[in-house]
Structure formats: C-alpha cells, structure tokens
Write a protein that binds this DNA or RNA. Sequence first.
DNA 1: AGGTTCATGTAACCCGTTACATGATTTC
DNA 2: GAAATCATGTAACGGGTTACATGAACCT
Lengths: 166, 166
Amino acid sequence: MSGYDLRKIFASTAMGSFSDSPGAIYPALRRLETGGLAHGHVQPTASLRKRRLYRLTPKGLAAFKAWLKKPVTRDDVIRRIPELMMRFAFMGQTLGEKRTAKFLGEFARELQDYIPVLKQYLESYANEMPLSGRLALECGIQGYEAQLRWAKSSISLYERKRRKQA
Amino acid sequence: MSGYDLRKIFASTAMGSFSDSPGAIYPALRRLETGGLAHGHVQPTASLRKRRLYRLTPKGLAAFKAWLKKPVTRDDVIRRIPELMMRFAFMGQTLGEKRTAKFLGEFARELQDYIPVLKQYLESYANEMPLSGRLALECGIQGYEAQLRWAKSSISLYERKRRKQA
DNA sequence: AGGTTCATGTAACCCGTTACATGATTTC
DNA sequence: GAAATCATGTAACGGGTTACATGAACCT
C-alpha cells in the first residue's frame, strides 16, 4: 500500500484508529524502511504522479507475526483491549485458526482471573466511593464480562468448526 | 496533592491510567502552574525534606468543570470511552446528580445511535471479512451494548433516587 | 480556468518515555 | 551501616500534531 492509501483507511474506519496525519504516516513508513521491515518502491506508471508502494519484507512479516503471537497479559487486558482486538482481527488470516483459538483461550483466562479482582475491589471500597465512581467501576466490570462471554462463545465456535472439518 | 502522591495513585490504580513517570508528572504540574490552573507551595515542615503540594486555582476548577460538562459526541463513544468513564466518575461529586444523569442520557443516546451503524456495517461487509475480523467487530458491538444496558440502568437508578428525595 | 482530489513531504512544537541524578528519611 | 523509601527533578530521544508546501491529474 501507499501512504495515501493508509491515510484514507485510517481516516474512514473507526477500528483501531491510527493517526491519519501525513506527519505521522510518511515518517513512520520511512522508519519501517530503514528498519528493514518494509520496502517501498515507486510504482511504474505512464504519468508523472508518483506513488510509493510499500510491501512487508520477510523480516517485517516475521516481526508482525511475533507481535500477533505475544502472550496475553493482565496488563493487556487492563489497558490495551483495543490492541488485543486488532491483533485478533489480523490473526485469523495470518496465523491460522488453531493459533487464533489459542489466543482466545489466553484472553478468556486473563479475563476470568481479573474480573474477580475488580469485583473484590468494588466490594471493599464501595462505601468509601461516590455513587458515580461506583457505577463507573461497575460499567468496567460489565464490559469485561461481556467480553468474556464473547470470548467463550467464539472459542466454542472455533471448536465446532474444527470438529466439522475433522 | 504532591507529584509523589499522584505517582503512587497512577502506579497503583488501573483506572484511567495516567503515566506515573516523574518525567511526565513534574513537568505537567509546572505547566498547570504556569497556566494558572494550579498553585504549588512547599509544605512547611520541621524536616529538610521538601514536599510541594498543589491545589487547583478557581480558574483550574472552572476548567475542570468545563471538561466535565463537554457534550458527549459520537467520536467520544468511538475512541474515548475510558475518558468518558473518568469524567463520569468525577462528575457526581463535582457537578451534582442532576447534571450527572444528564450526561448518562447523552451517553445512552449516542450509543443508541451508533450501535445500529456498526450492526449495519457488519451486515454489509460480513461476507468479505475473515472470520476473526467479523468476530472482533461483534465483540465491539457487544461491548457497546453492555455499556448501553449499564447506562440505562444507571439512569433509572438516579431517577428512583430522585423520586425518593422528592 | 479553477477547484478538487491524488500524493508526498517538511518544520516547529509539544510532550511522554527512559534513564539518570540528588539528597533526606526510615527500616532492618 | 546498608537498603529501601520519600521526593523532586533533568536530559536525550522518539514520535505525534498542526500547519504549511508542492505539484500532478481530473472534473466541470
């Protein structure tokens, strides 16, 4: 893709929300190139308008896969759910369904462990907290619970699919 | 509070997650001071260890309230749910329950409007998307739905409370 | 001919991260 | 007396934001 293509995607889709500003994208692409993770070449064309197309190098693809394969940590669940979801969205095509299901298992386990911690916290401090603080915490807990339900149902979906293929 | 106090809070609580690094906090406090939003004074003490305590100025409190009162936008719902929740958590004590309930109403309305857009998007593009991409989007939708349920039940809680006080 | 879109880039500025530095006080 | 904690800060670096600049191609 070209920098311009990326800009349009980042500007139009809400998912994952990278910056669409040229001051972010073009230097970033150059960094990928100097780092050997991507390679850009000017698209040969009849016109004078140049389009620099980038493509991942093998090293870049390896780095991408390594990012996808990182284990899911407690900290990811607390602060980086959107990043986890983006990794998951890319994972299916890149790592295959078995690995993707494994990711969901890790995600579910971390949620399973973390939700009781939050509930415990709420129980201990509820009477010292203002109503809106309590409710905000409850909102977070319910969000995590919804994600846990989603993860479990997705896991069983992958399992059913696998049994059908076998 | 002092910078050190803030560091401890940011390091220990998961909510809202400001940076706890001194390179972020101390310059930020100085900026608040130069901007006239906070005023810091060295706590008088018998020891030689200095503690600089900060307090909001009237101007700072006004800016804080203005931040809390900002209308809830579609963009907030898409990208800044954690910030919205933090605003809500602070709101109860600072703006009162009536204003807090109004915030919840705006939040619920934005969710109510946005969820069908996402569902529509999913329906249109589901067959062109890989399974994991589809599931990731569904996870987002279910998260929003959970938040909408939470908002509605919180609204009715505030309403019940208000009727009881009347 | 003029406005819009395509397409890439740079420069000033702001600010967070990482890492280091300094010294007082408390704890074992 | 050593280690941990209290408490504040600075410097180098990376990278995003905003705003500006440049020019080609397309549409009317």
